[in-house]
Amino acid sequence: MKTETASPRYRALDTWSSEDILETMLEGQMAAVAAVAPALPAIAAAADAAAERLARGGRLIYVGAGTSGRIGVQDGVELTPTFNWPKDRLIFLLAGGDLSLMESIEGAEDDSEAAEREIVAAGIGKDDVVLGLAASGGTPYTVAALRRARALGALTIGVANNAGTAILEASAHPVLLDTGAEIIAGSTRMKAGTAQKAMLNLFSSLLMIRLGRVYEGQMVDMQASNKKLVLRSERMLRQLTGCGSDAARAALEKADGNVKLAILILRGRSPEEARTALAAAGGHLRKALEG
């Protein structure tokens, strides 16, 4: 297993100068991001397939243990404030439960029965998307969750940093991030974790674009939950429509802060007409504007 292999190159690492150690670790981080490039076709296929399920009302479920589980949570929690992804359509299944976000829960990653119970308890079905992550590719908890979810008809996506592993085999859409040996042997929070985070950044952002939550490169479904984001909403409206600040604020007020509705209102629709047009377009602003 490459991620557990001790490389002869780093055998005397602790005798190197601090600058040399940092330079080598930085090179490893850059190589980790580069390792995502060969997986782009697999990531694109997974995101497109996931968008089809989620467009029908499905949920996005992140599954993992330890570092991989925490990275999944970090990605998922950002989808609500950034893209207004509904909280009730986002689930995190972590080996050892929520406590594992802050401390290591010994033995939890080996509990495959717990994973199966949690998948069933979540009511996973055919419109759901289950994304499992594990550097090793063989974490029993994550493998069991993916297999059970697939048996229940969910779309499964497996992300691993070792080829030929159970997580990749258990998934309809396997994504291999071949990061190789870690500079500190087995410390997969380093290269493997960086590659997973980069992959999730790409996957979830593409997914939200395909679901119509991005228009003209702007986060038009963003939740304006503080003063900074209210100002960002107004700025988006000015940039996208050419309106002035007063018109932007008035449109946002009529649209209850919804940027997409505000754009349609500024294009001459009433609030009711704007809501109807956006719903008919499946939430895609470009389609609503063209309709």
Rank of each mutant, 00 (worst) to 15 (best):
M1C: 15
M1S: 15
T3R: 04
T3E: 10
E4A: 15
P8D: 11
P8R: 08
Y10W: 15
L13V: 13
I21F: 12
L22A: 14
E23V: 14
E23K: 14
T24I: 05
L26N: 14
G28C: 06
G28S: 10
Q29K: 03
M30D: 13
A31E: 15
V33T: 11
L40Y: 08
I43W: 09
A46L: 03
A49K: 09
A50K: 02
A51C: 05
E52P: 09
R53G: 10
A55F: 10
G64E: 02
A65M: 10
A65E: 03
T67D: 09
S68H: 07
G72E: 02
D75K: 00
G76H: 08
V77D: 06
E78F: 08
T80S: 08
T82R: 06
F83P: 00
W85Q: 06
F92K: 06
G96E: 01
G97K: 01
M102T: 15
I105Q: 10
G107P: 03
E109A: 05
E109P: 05
D110H: 10
S112G: 15
A115S: 04
R117S: 12
E118S: 12
V120P: 06
V120F: 04
A122T: 07
G123K: 00
G123T: 00
G123R: 01
G125Y: 02
G125C: 11
K126D: 15
D127C: 10
L131W: 13
L133Y: 10
P140L: 04
P140H: 07
Y141W: 02
V143G: 09
A144K: 04
A145F: 03
A145R: 01
R150L: 01
L152P: 06
L152F: 00
G153T: 04
A154Q: 08
A163N: 06
A163W: 04
G164Y: 03
I167A: 07
E169I: 00
A170V: 03
S171Y: 05
H173F: 06
H173V: 01
L176C: 03
L176I: 07
L176F: 00
D178E: 14
G180S: 02
G186S: 08
S187M: 14
Q196C: 11
A198P: 07
L200N: 11
N201R: 01
F203D: 08
M208H: 01
R213T: 00
G217E: 00
G217D: 01
V220P: 00
M222V: 11
M222R: 06
M222I: 11
Q223V: 15
K227L: 15
L229S: 04
L229C: 13
L231C: 13
S233R: 03
S233Y: 00
M236R: 06
R238N: 08
L240G: 10
L240C: 05
L240P: 03
T241E: 01
G242W: 11
G242R: 11
C243N: 08
A250W: 12
D256M: 14
D256I: 12
N258W: 02
K260R: 07
L261Y: 01
A262H: 05
L264N: 09
I265S: 08
R267G: 15
S270P: 12
P271N: 07
R275P: 12
T276V: 13
T276L: 12
A277T: 07
L278N: 09
L278E: 08
A281M: 08
A288G: 06
A288Y: 02
L289P: 10
G291L: 08
